[in-house]
Simulated assay, not measured.
Amino acid sequence: MSWKKIKIAEIQGIEKVVAEFYVRSITYIPNCQFRVKITEDINGKYSARVNVAIRNSRDRSPEWVGGTGDSIDEALENSIQELVNSIKSSGKNINLLQEEDFEWSDPEDF
């Protein structure tokens, strides 16, 4: 039986981790590398989660982003673009970003 056909009362959804990527960018990320995890839902749609977030200027809370798509590649591209957009729209000077401008997910959660 396929995992997509599992039906258990009180379980609203199952997602399968189908890929994880390491992305390097010295322009946007001070330590230059972050991870993107891709999951597939039972309908064959893909979601991507990024393990880093820019802190907003108002209260320094993290602006977590992700992406979706009909393929692994599309979800990956959309999540990276969303991260870049959130960094660009943060109001911070990209050339002066420091480690403290970001929040990282707990490695055990990612």
Score class of each variant (00 low, 15 high):
I8G: 14
N78L: 03
D70R: 01
E15G: 08
I14S: 03
W104M: 14
A75R: 01
I80T: 05
V65K: 00
S79G: 14
N93F: 14
S86C: 08
R60L: 13
R49M: 05
I42R: 07
D109P: 01
E20F: 08
S2Y: 00
K5A: 14
R35N: 13
G91T: 01
D109N: 09
V23M: 11
F34A: 06
N43P: 02
I54R: 00
S89L: 01
N95T: 13
N43S: 13
K37V: 11
A9I: 12
K92L: 12
I72W: 06
A48M: 03
N43I: 04
V65C: 04
F110H: 00
N95F: 14
I14C: 09
S89Q: 00
N56P: 02
I14Q: 08
T68S: 11
W3G: 06
V84S: 02
D106L: 03
I29P: 10
Y28L: 11
A9Q: 12
I38D: 01
K16F: 09
T39P: 04
F102H: 02
E20G: 08
V23A: 10
Q81F: 00
Y28Q: 10
R58M: 02
V65F: 12
E100H: 07
A53I: 03
D41L: 10
S61R: 10
L76K: 07
N56E: 10
W64H: 04
S86V: 03
R24W: 15
E10T: 07
S90C: 04
S79Q: 06
F34P: 01
S90Q: 00
N31I: 13
S86D: 00
S89E: 07
I42A: 14
S79M: 04
R60H: 09
K88Y: 15
N43G: 12
T27H: 15
T39M: 03
Y46C: 04
Q81P: 01
I54G: 02
I6K: 09
G66T: 06
P30E: 15
D101F: 08
L76M: 04
V84M: 04
I29A: 10
S57R: 04
A48L: 03
N31P: 03
Y22P: 05
E103H: 02
N95A: 14
N56R: 00
A48V: 01
Q33C: 14
M1S: 12
K16Q: 12
I87R: 01
